[in-house]
Structure formats: C-alpha cells, structure tokens
Design a protein around this nucleic acid. Sequence first.
DNA 1: GGCAAATTTTGACGACCGTCAAGGACGCGC
DNA 2: GCGCGTCCTTGACGGTCGTCAAAATTTGCC
Lengths: 230, 230
Amino acid sequence: MAIEAHPCANCSFYEHSLWRPVAGGNISTLNRSFTRRNLDAGHVLYHQGAPSDGVYCVSQGLIAIRSFAPNGSSSLLRLAYPGELIGYRAFLTERDHRTEAQALLPSRVCIVAHRDAKNVLRACPEVLAGLAIHCADELDRCHDRIQDAARSSNKDRLAQLLDDLMASHGTEKHDIRRMRLPISRQDLADILGVQAETLSRLMKRLESEGRMRSSGRWIEMHKPMTGTGI
Amino acid sequence: MAIEAHPCANCSFYEHSLWRPVAGGNISTLNRSFTRRNLDAGHVLYHQGAPSDGVYCVSQGLIAIRSFAPNGSSSLLRLAYPGELIGYRAFLTERDHRTEAQALLPSRVCIVAHRDAKNVLRACPEVLAGLAIHCADELDRCHDRIQDAARSSNKDRLAQLLDDLMASHGTEKHDIRRMRLPISRQDLADILGVQAETLSRLMKRLESEGRMRSSGRWIEMHKPMTGTGI
DNA sequence: GGCAAATTTTGACGACCGTCAAGGACGCGC
DNA sequence: GCGCGTCCTTGACGGTCGTCAAAATTTGCC
C-alpha cells in the first residue's frame, strides 16, 4: 500500500497548493519526525483537558472528536477520516485539548510529537500552510453545520447525515446501498444535537416515509435521501 | 492613536506567539502591503459568492459575517471586532467568499490585497502562523457555538449573547449597565438561529424575570445575566 | 414634527422536541 | 443457553418553537 511506501502518503501535511514545496528538501524534516500508531476501536487518542501532545493525521480508520459538558452531555463535533488532521487546534493555540479523540474503528494515525512540531513548522512553511488550509476547511464545515441547524429540520439533517455516512461507508449492490453504521445511535444524536429518544423517532419517520430501512446497525436505501447537496 | 503610528497596530497579522519575528525585518513586507479603508455603517465589504480579494483586519468598528440561503433565510455567523481577521478563509482555501461582510458601525479595515497576500505569507512565516492561530481560535468559537446550541436553552443562549454584547458595547454608571445594541433584533435572532418572533418572546421572558430591561435598541441590566462563563 | 417604510411585537395554532418512565433488543461472558 | 448489562425504542405529557396574520412601534427622511 502507498501508506507503507511513505510515512503518511494520504496525509494533509503535504498539502501545499498555495506554496510550492521548498527546493532542496526541508520537507525531509517532516519525514524524519513521523511516528505511527495503531489504535483499537474504542481507544482514546487524547482526552479533553489534556495538554497538547502533538499533531496527528488519520491515515486509516475513523476518529470521533467529542466534547463533554460538566453536566455529562456530550457533543460529537467531528468525524475525522483518513487524510485529515486532528489535534492541531490545541497545538496552534497552545492551549489544552478541548475535545476527546476516540477511534470508532481500528485506526492508524501519524504523529508529529509536540516537541518536534514547532521545528517542523519552522523548517517547512508549506506544512504550516497546509495546517492553515486544513483549519480553514474545518471552519467551513462548522459554518455549514451552524447554518444547517438554523435552517433545516432535524429530520432533513438526519437524512443528510445518513447520506454522507453512506457515501463513505456504504456499498452498492443491485441498486441497493447498504452500510453498517460506524457510530452508535447516541453518537448520531450527539452529532445532530438532539436527544437519543428524538433520534429514534426521527429514524422511524424516515423509515415510515420509505426513504430507508434499518435493522440494528445496518441501514439500506435505494438513493440518497436528499438532493445530494446543491 | 496607536493606529496612526502604525499601519494596523492592534492587528492579528502581528500575532506570532509561536514564532519569533524574523530577524532583519521580513515583516516590512507586510508593512508595505497595507491599505486602509473606511466603511460607513451598512457598507458591504465583500459579497457572498465573490472571489477572494484579499485578507482584511478590522481595526475599528464592528463587522457582521453573514450567510444567506437560497430560500432567503440568513445566518449571522460571526461578529468581527477590532483586531480580528476576516476574509482569510476564502484566501486560504482559494475558493469564493461563502459569506458576506457588512459593517454594522462606522468601521475601518486594513487590507492586504489578494495579489500581495501570497508574497507576504511567503516572506513572513510568522504572519502565516498568526493566520493559522487566528483560524484555530475561530474554530474554537464555532465549536462552542455548536455545543451551546445542543446543550443550552435558547433563553440562556440569548442571555449569554446579551451579556457578551454588554461587555463589549456597554457602559456602567451607578451600578447599571447600559448599551445601545449594535445589531438589530433580526440579527440577534440570526445569531441564535431562531425566528424573529421567537426572539421577541425570549426577550420578553428575560424582562419578565427581571433580568434586564429593554426599550428599542437600548438595554440595561444590573449584573451579567449568566454565570459569566464557567 | 410628521409621514411612510421598515422593523418589531402580539396572538393563535399546530408541530416538534425534551423529559421521565417503562419496556424491548442486543451483545457478552459464564 | 442463560442471565445480565447496555443500548435502543416506545408512550405520555408539557413546554418551546415555527408559521401566518395583524397590530404596534421604531426608524429614516423631508
């Protein structure tokens, strides 16, 4: 696999559409600073409140970024897929992690340890640029989510969410799309910002409208339930 | 004022807690690239869908960052205060503006034109770092907002919002805090993601609970209505 | 100061969601 | 296979919000 041929081939560290790679090879500073780590499903990569320990890039699997409130309620802020960076917010702002990162599937991450990360970014402006671009992209997605919450019904947002998950995790066979949900119902509710009971009723409504069928963690549908974005 | 002594003294372009300023003075590349512009209240700095025209830093006034849906509904994603950067998302991602920036008060912005911005960032990694940090900070605030929407009641979120506005725009006299709201009721509703009618009722409820009083755009209260954050 | 336009408020109603409580399904270990 | 714990579902109910329509207030302008 490409991942073996390169420390982190599909890794956003190497994104630099704005800045050409530095001639010569400062990028090797980055290459020398990588560590890799395998995570079992359920493993917590870093905890909320912990000090920044570096910058991570997901290379395989799926990582949930969660936040817990003092009263116990939790939000699922983000699902990080291969190629995406996590943990950089704490590093950039030099504050503690405000979220928890947990592997939802068996996963692998590339790590640039905190002590190396500053040197890497000093040596490789193109990596810093990649970080900034990645951050701006995530900001976009957050804005979308805020607008969505204000504009769309929870039912429509659930349909959109399931469509997105299906696009990432589903398989198509004989015109039927099928997937095993990578996240629990509670997590689905935490993404939408509703209670688990409400989520259950929303699912039932989508089913009663014939838009999809679900049984346990398995979901199937014929076509995307929404207008496939814009 | 300090603003006269320096192109944009209270400007986040100069934020570089992680990276020391480059010895010698690459920073002068930035200093040479500034333009300033005064905006009347109501003026639109850039429109949704327009191509990126540069990076801006608010130096005086107040700028609203809005997004409009095809159906006409709008969200107010952010209020940008002096010292904050705007327009950098479109620049970093090399995509069109997804939001509109409108001055709510007579304002002044520093501009690094699009054609200069790349050069500045290439010449000044510390400026690029400042951009990344600023972006990470804004991401934090977005995450807070998403969690807030899921966890707190709209009434509590309105109280928090008014407290924040009071802290920025209010004056205290004889133990009474007073301010003229810099934004319309509709904008308040757009920030919370509720309808104008709902906002009106929420205000009435806060008043009936004796937490504040309002008359037109004027609002007064004795103490912050919420527990002042954590 | 006064008029017209725009903004805000109020009322009524239905739909949706949170909460509590109970019941059911599923997975896991013995 | 059985029991147990966790996760999910269902029911009932009150509170909140969106929607439509109309009245009231504020704002901008002359």
